[in-house]
């Protein structure tokens, strides 16, 4: 299973990277793209949108199904990746390179509530029965 140790995770299968300037880069995990299959459509939140923790803010759709993406913490969208919208299959090729959007967290300490790699791995294993 591909779960980089330096990232944070959510139970809804988003990954989060804390950048040097404190912004959070968000995408969906390798496991999530594996469940969904070939990606064909991605819609990111608009830059400037202010999100609550857990708010539906983006959509990823594979040939098979649509899935919502949730804000990992409260914050403001400061960037959205137009390239993954143009080439959704980038998420299948490398889920951790194909980031979706960047958040400026309302409270930087909120990232401490996210899962670390070991906890996320446990969660994925438990979902696999």
């Amino acid at each position: 299973m591909n779960i980089p140790a330096d990232l944070k995770y959510t139970p809804s299968h988003e990954w989060v990277r804390v950048e040097a300037d404190g912004t959070l880069t968000v995408g969906i995990t390798h496991h999530a793209q594996d469940l969904l299959g070939d990606m064909v459509f991605i819609e990111n939140p608009a830059t400037g949108r202010v999100l609550n923790k857990g708010e539906e803010c983006a959509v990823v759709e594979s040939v098979k199904a649509a899935s919502d993406v949730y804000a990992p913490v409260a914050g403001e969208v400061v960037a959205a990746n137009a390239e993954v919208e143009a080439s959704p299959d980038a998420v299948n090729r490398d889920a951790y390179a194909a980031w979706m959007f960047k958040l400026k967290p309302a409270n930087p300490a909120d990232v401490n509530d996210l899962l670390d790699a070991a906890a996320y791995q446990k969660l994925v294993e438990s979902e696999a029965h």
């Binding site: 299959g37 070939d38 064909v40 040939v63 098979k64 299948n92």
Partner: peptide, 8 residues
């Protein structure tokens, strides 16, 4: 089997 890798 739903796919063997890539559905597309």
């Amino acid at each position: 089997p739903v796919n063997y890798g890539s559905q597309i």
